[in-house]
């Protein structure tokens, strides 16, 4: 039997702060079926005993879509300026929802797993990562709704822009997973974190061009004489970049909007809602954001590795 010949393991690996990410990736990969089970259990518990079940994940974004269409599209008149405004908002809401779900789910993930964390040794990172997985499942449901909407309205996105969805998703998942890991660990030590997250996400939502065009921010800042770095600051928000890219990729109104903007500019009209992002450097900018997200994930995992040593005593 292999019982005696198997190699010994050090039960508690102490790694220097900068090292250990590689073993994390390897361990998560080895435990991938476990991760899937966690995601399933997580969803099962959340929707147990409700008639609609997992369909509830779509209720909130669809109600949001309805309310925002009415207020932003109709009352505030964005609907007139932005073609296919419903898609514009839905794609933005969907991506931001993915980001927000990862963080809110992540915040309570370790607390939720407390009974298991206190009894069984396993990679604790699987818990926030399961929240990431759960958020991706919800996101997939939204994606199905989006596809159905394309078919029903016969309004399809611009296929040549579709590639932008890849860095947009990567940015959202990398920053989201980093955030989920960080807040899941911090929340064990200070339960305020889960409430702080709600406030932070509210701020971030309105500082992300989901319901309005990003150029409105640029123009308003310029008109009021703000320095040019003010807009750069606004665009440092990774989700602002991701949402803009995601909309460009999946929003059927993009060509029409760009043409409209060009016509407006030519006619010298005062308000220009521009949708053609900066220039060709946008793609580079997105991939730099992806890289920044990867660095953040590395950092978050290392912080998590430090903080997790106290989980069993703090829970």
């Amino acid at each position: 039997m292999s019982r005696t010949s198997s190699d010994a393991v050090v039960v508690h690996q102490r790694e220097p702060f900068l090292r250990g990410f590689g073993s994390f990736v390897a361990d998560v990969w080895a435990a991938r079926t476990m991760l899937v089970s966690f995601v399933r259990k997580d969803l099962m518990i959340r929707y147990r005993g409700s008639a609609l079940g997992i369909a509830w994940t779509m209720v909130k974004p669809l109600v949001q879509l309805l309310v925002f269409s009415l207020v932003m599209g109709y009352f505030l008149g964005f609907g007139d300026q932005i073609p296919a405004f419903g898609f514009y908002m839905f794609t933005g809401l969907m991506l931001f929802g993915l980001f927000a779900d990862q963080l809110t789910g992540g915040a309570t993930s370790v607390l939720w797993g407390a009974p298991v964390v206190k009894k069984v040794a396993f990679r604790r990172e699987l818990l926030p990562l399961a929240a990431v997985g759960g958020a991706l499942v919800n996101f997939t449901f939204m994606g199905v709704v989006l596809l159905l909407a394309y078919v029903v309205t016969r309004d399809f996105p611009n296929w040549h822009m579709l590639g932008l969805a890849v860095p947009a998703l990567l940015i959202t998942v990398l920053f989201g997973a980093a955030g989920a890991m960080l807040v899941s660990a911090l929340n064990v030590y200070a339960r305020d974190v889960q409430f702080l997250i709600d406030v932070g996400l509210l701020l971030m939502f309105w500082l992300t061009p989901v319901l309005y065009p990003w150029s409105t921010v640029q123009n308003t800042l310029a008109e009021n004489g703000a320095p040019s770095w003010a807009f750069e600051l606004y665009m440092l928000n990774p989700m602002a970049n991701a949402v803009v890219a995601f909309q460009q990729a999946l929003w059927p109104g993009v060509d029409e909007a760009v043409a409209n903007a060009a016509a407006q500019r030519a006619a010298g009209e005062p308000f220009i809602a521009d949708f053609d992002y900066f220039d060709s450097a946008f793609a580079t900018r997105l991939w730099l954001m992806v890289l920044a997200g990867a660095v953040c994930l590395w950092f978050a995992q290392r912080v998590f590795a430090r903080l997790q040593t106290g989980f069993a005593t703090e829970l």
Binding site: S6, D7, V10, V11, H12, V120, A121, G310, A312, T313
Partner: peptide, 16 residues
């Protein structure tokens, strides 16, 4: 600690 649930402040545990 032997079970790996708690991380000791100092020292180590090895297992086969």
């Amino acid at each position: 600690i032997i079970g790996g649930v708690l991380t000791p402040t100092a020292g180590q545990v090895r297992r086969r």
